Amino acid sequence: MSSMKEVMLRLVKEGVEEHCADLEGRRRSYAAAFTALLKPGGGGRFSWACVSEFSTLPEVQQLKEAMLETILEGRAQRSERALRSSGATIDIQRTSKSYEWAENGFCRALWLLCSAAKPPETILQPDVTPGQCWAFQGSQGQVVVRLPAPVQPTAVTVQHIYKAASPSGTVSSAPRDVTVSGVDEEGEEETLLGAFTYDVEAEAIQSFPLKHKSSRAFQYIKLSVQSNWGNPEYTCIYRVQVHGQVASRSSSPAAEETTSPSLNKK
């Protein structure tokens, strides 16, 4: 009985070792195939049979499915939700007044170079050529964006231009300290979602994860600029993007009001 047990254990051990050796061999073939593919000029020659064979392994299939799920989730969360062409708009009543360029001394001196004031909707469009920005007076202001649908926001992206591309030769009008909040339609409730600093010495496009995560979805997002980089007359914003997952109807505030029973109902 004991000898039979030993034989079974030996067979199992040999089977495991053989399977592991087979997996290692396939892994090496898979790595060699892609190494050849990545050589300069793509001149490496290899057989795709090993790749196809390796990709059918259950372990690889599970890994591929997990990677695909992660990629799709990331794309959903990073999708642009504040795009004018998709239906995003500006709540003018709760947005700072646009800066009047006619009052600017630089524009009075070089009036041919200055165009009319751009509306706040400018920040919802992908055109970020120099001068295509929305400006408000002073170093503090706000803009409220109405998204096409309620979203559970995860990050915000702010874009300015590089100093070398600036018509004035400076980026002192870029926003500096910024807060982001979710607000309701009437403006009575406000939920702080995050605060960050836009760095003019870094990349022109900067994304900021919202650290104050909320399970609630918002259709109105308020971007409040607390300071800029030194321009006393105006602050310019080129583009604002809101990222996050579009909420289901049951998780939106409007749906909650619709589905919740009324306390006064008899």
Results as ranks from 00 to 15, higher is better:
F106M: 07
P150T: 02
G87C: 00
A149F: 12
N264K: 15
S248P: 00
E24P: 05
Y234M: 05
I221T: 02
C236Y: 05
Q206S: 03
L112A: 14
Q219K: 08
G74L: 11
P120S: 13
G182N: 02
N231I: 02
R75W: 13
P119M: 06
T122V: 07
E257N: 12
P261W: 10
I71R: 14
V180P: 02
E69A: 15
V158R: 06
A164T: 13
Q93D: 15
S55N: 15
Q125H: 10
S79I: 01
A31Y: 09
M4V: 15
R249A: 13
H19P: 01
F208C: 04
G187T: 07
V183N: 03
E189N: 12
V151M: 01
A88F: 02
F136W: 03
M8T: 12
F34G: 09
A202E: 12
W111L: 04
A135D: 14
A49Y: 10
S173H: 14
Q93S: 15
F106H: 11
T56M: 13
S248G: 12
G194Y: 03
V145R: 00
G187E: 07
H212F: 09
R176G: 06
S2R: 11
C50H: 13
V158E: 07
T259L: 15
P153T: 06
V246K: 06
L57P: 08
S224G: 00
A76H: 07
Q206R: 02
D199L: 09
A82P: 06
I71D: 10
Y234E: 05
A49Q: 14
T197A: 14
Y238W: 09
S173G: 07
G43K: 08
S260F: 12
C107T: 04
E80A: 13
M1H: 13
G25Q: 05
Q125F: 08
V151T: 05
V156Y: 04
L57M: 14
G87E: 03
V51P: 06
A21R: 10
V16L: 06
A174L: 03
Y198P: 07
R10E: 12
